[in-house]
Amino acid sequence: MQKQNGTELKNKAKQLLQNKTVDRVAGFCAGEFAYDPSPCVFYSAEEIEENMIYDCFCSPNFSKFLVKETKKPGRIAVFMKPCDTYSLNQLITEHKIDKDKIYIAGIGCDGMVDVFKLRNKTGSAILKASCDNGALTVKTPDGDMTFAFDEVLAERCLVCKSKKHVYYDELLCEPSFETDTGRFDKVEQIEKMSADARYEFFRSELSKCIRCNACRDACPACTCETCVFGESSSGAESRENANEFEEKLFHIIRAYHVAGRCTDCGECSRVCPQRIPLHLLNRKFILDINRFYGVYQAGETVGQIPPLTDKNESDPEV
């Protein structure tokens, strides 16, 4: 259940606009369904009063969205969950976001609902949803259902890496800390599989890929000017996978490209319409980096250099 209530956010957003701290505010407005709030930008207190919402379905990581937003004139306020701020730091480090053009209000988070999980559990249309007191109540044509929050929480939230905001201008919640929730357990399980079983696991998962590019488009580490998979000269331009090799190629190349820069925000798996656990590839890379070069959390601070692109005097000479 989110710690922050919508009214508090609304008031803060209106205040930031009114005292001219920012020119606009990014937030959520109601979507078509109860479980899919849409990101949108508010320019006036009236719009905020009327349309702004915040609930346990407001999952998206807004950091990548700021790459384009900060190219526009004026300053924008964004409410960020702890995990979002890691991606933000990484983007600031890579000169993708100008700090002067953002105002970050850190908001507390107890995790977000995984809509797929929820829909599987309800087995029917969700007409209304509300989270309260550690439980989620949904209204369906078959009547109301109530779920314990842990039952419907997204995997990335169940193994949350940190409740600490690593970047903010203002905190709307109590400062919190990093957490250790065994997020590498699944990777270690996969490592223990035989090579064949492991290959089969990823082959079958990646074979579901429809190359919609949602993972790439949502990933805050995917910020190339022109994606190699969008370039016609690459021979692998935006199109469906032609064969099994291409299915793997896309995701493995993507994992390599974000290695050392991936903050493990989990957006790739969240947006995947085919439910491929893409974050496992990235998490394996993170675990390997931790083992080889010491524990490293991308996005922990602005200006840190990923171990894979770092060099220093103690490096062994070739």
Binding site: T93, E94, T223, C224, E225, T226, I305, P306, T309, K311
Partner: peptide, 10 residues
């Protein structure tokens, strides 16, 4: 193509 990320300079 360059996105100015500074990885190369690192």
């Amino acid at each position: 193509k360059c996105s100015g990320c500074s990885l190369c300079a690192n």
